[in-house]
Design a protein around this nucleic acid. Structure first.
Lengths: 346, 346
DNA sequence: TTGAAAGCGGTACCAT
DNA sequence: ATGGTACCGCTTTCAA
């Protein structure tokens, strides 16, 4: 059933039917009701292709995900973020298109999508330092929102970020306040902007307390359970091991716990751990009143929702200033931190 | 730059240019080269909307994800599967559209997408027993592939499934062979077809060994770390506790390990554990030669890739018989299983 | 308040 | 081998 057939069935013109359907004011209430009724009973839906062509808008947002060998991006956090954006898109009638492209074709994929007119806006995931996508998108003149920021690119753009630096600085300072001086860092991949900022936060906290940073206590990787395990294993085996850890996600924190317990030590008694908790539904930080781990927490799903709202706003109001939001993470107390013991635990 | 402008720039007709671009044979090699060249230098791409309208095809596959309260679906496994499908779609020029819809609007979303002509095929995730989506899709007459199967719906349809029943039966039988008679089951949500089949496999293995199933040793839930922890805590507290566990995913298995270690017991010595391992890149089952857990293993990403191929094949060859593939999981030996001790460990 | 008709940017049939 | 042109289904301007 297309518009013409619907109009014929009603004995009206396509124009009137289209107007009635799209809520234009110049249609009499009587006809509007008739049209809406008929449309419902025939289960009529306007063809997206045709509407696309006629309006020049695609009603679709695109998320381009590079297929890197290790699939850095397509992880738990990414999908949680996406489901936040997807909810909001759906509420506003937008489709979400997800493109997986080989890393070396990534930039071209943005160009292509714009040239084909298949997209109204882009959501940018996982910005790196000096991310090459941002200048490209600015050049293409298409709306986009970045989840995070890109150190080194200083032209204004729309973004939403958590204050990663501050969150980890607070977490580290808290551990220092408990008497810890040897604190291990298990970070995410440090070409990613968020991981860089977290590292800065960690270093700032140490510096403020007059503690010299030790390369042996810092590691960066892909935030898996084994990453945490391996890092903790190595660090706990040092002649001067850490008494506490800061980890960039729950998964490596589970690995840290495994390493700690493997040495007959206990998290929250012998070894303190704080992690960054993105509040991923499948990886809850415990499910009781007291969280499993003390954590810096913020919701990626909420971030996704808000990013989508910002993107839609960019499209609807192209001349408003670009939105930039910095969210603060909260520090929540769990069972994984305690005052440092006087004697190093070995 | 559109087709007309490109044709004008070349001094050719739109027809010829279109033919050259789409690989039609009746174009001289000279003109084809010229056209291809010009298209490249102008960075010309055909408008998706226009092509959509003209061909009646959208070159897009849709994944509809219900927004259930607990977000059953948007989990680690789901995104791993999606990235498999997405890769293949991209290789074949298809877009992947992901729609998040409230559960009560799910079926309507399929109808809508078909009525708008915005999709060439659907990928169906997480089928349940008597899944209502399958008869609907059959009625709509649109190509679709199911990842899994739906017990109770017996009309032929295209699917790819892992032999969940057999995999868990083998795993359970293996534990029984090691001397375990009290085996706990930590399963996924049992309205899902895969979870039902796994339970059947578990029960079959027990029955074959003459072991009476015990409701207190079976639990179903959302496959999170706390689910495994809580289930194991409860079961290990029974007067007649299990000496082994079968778990439906890595995450709850990590929780089981936590509960076991919390009782000063050791996995792989005091308590045996086998889990189902979907080979999710962010949740590897260890990263060394020996897997952390003994496991029934199959790759969701590969399943995603294959499902996408099948879907594309359905579209290209609508009259071929529907493909149905049953994959066997492999049972891999890790460090989490051992011969049962004579005395129950408490 | 309603209708006619000109696009939107391609594809593909029918001529030449 | 190349070109003219009628669609595809909708939106939107202009006219009535």
């Amino acid at each position: 059933m297309n518009l013409k057939e619907l109009a014929d069935a009603l004995g009206l013109s396509q124009t009137t039917v289209s107007r009635a359907l799209n809520g234009y004011p110049e249609v009499s209430e009587g006809t509007r009701a008739r049209v809406l009724n008929a449309a419902r009973s025939f289960n009529y839906r306007p063809s997206t292709g045709a509407r696309n062509l006629a309006t020049g808008r695609s009603m679709a947002m695109r998320h381009i995900v590079p297929l890197s060998a290790r699939h850095d991006m397509m992880n738990v956090i990414f999908s949680e973020f996406m489901s936040g954006t997807g909810e909001v898109y759906a509420e506003h009638g937008y489709d979400m298109i997800v493109s997986f492209v080989p890393k070396d074709k990534e930039l071209q994929a943005y160009r292509d999508a714009v040239a084909r007119g298949s997209v109204d806006g882009f959501m940018i995931h996982g910005p790196t330092r000096d991310d090459p996508r941002l200048p490209l998108l600015a050049e293409l003149g298409v709306p986009f929102v970045v989840h995070g920021r890109s150190t080194g690119y200083n032209v204004p753009y729309a973004w939403l970020d958590v204050n990663n630096r501050r969150a980890i600085e607070r977490a580290t300072t808290y551990l220092i306040g408990l008497g810890h001086r040897r604190i291990g860092l298990v970070n995410g991949p440090e070409h990613m902007d968020f991981a860089l900022r977290r590292r800065e936060g960690y270093l700032t906290a140490l510096a403020s307390a007059g503690i010299t940073a030790d390369d042996a206590l810092m590691t960066a990787g892909d935030l898996t359970e084994p990453q945490g395990y391996n890092a903790a294993q190595r660090m706990l085996g040092l002649s001067n091991p850490p008494t506490a850890f800061v980890a960039s996600a729950i998964l490596p924190t589970l690995g840290i716990r495994r390493a700690v317990e493997g040495r007959k030590l206990e998290v929250g008694r012998d070894i303190s751990v704080i992690c960054y908790d993105d509040k991923v539904s499948t990886l809850p930080n415990g499910d009781t009143a007291e969280p499993m781990f003390t954590a810096a927490r913020s919701s990626v799903r909420d971030a996704g929702r808000r990013c989508a709202e910002i993107l839609i706003d960019c499209i609807n109001n192209p001349h408003l200033p670009l939105r930039q939001e910095l969210w603060e993470a909260e520090l929540i107390l769990g069972g994984s931190t305690a005052v440092a013991k006087k004697e190093p635990t070995r």
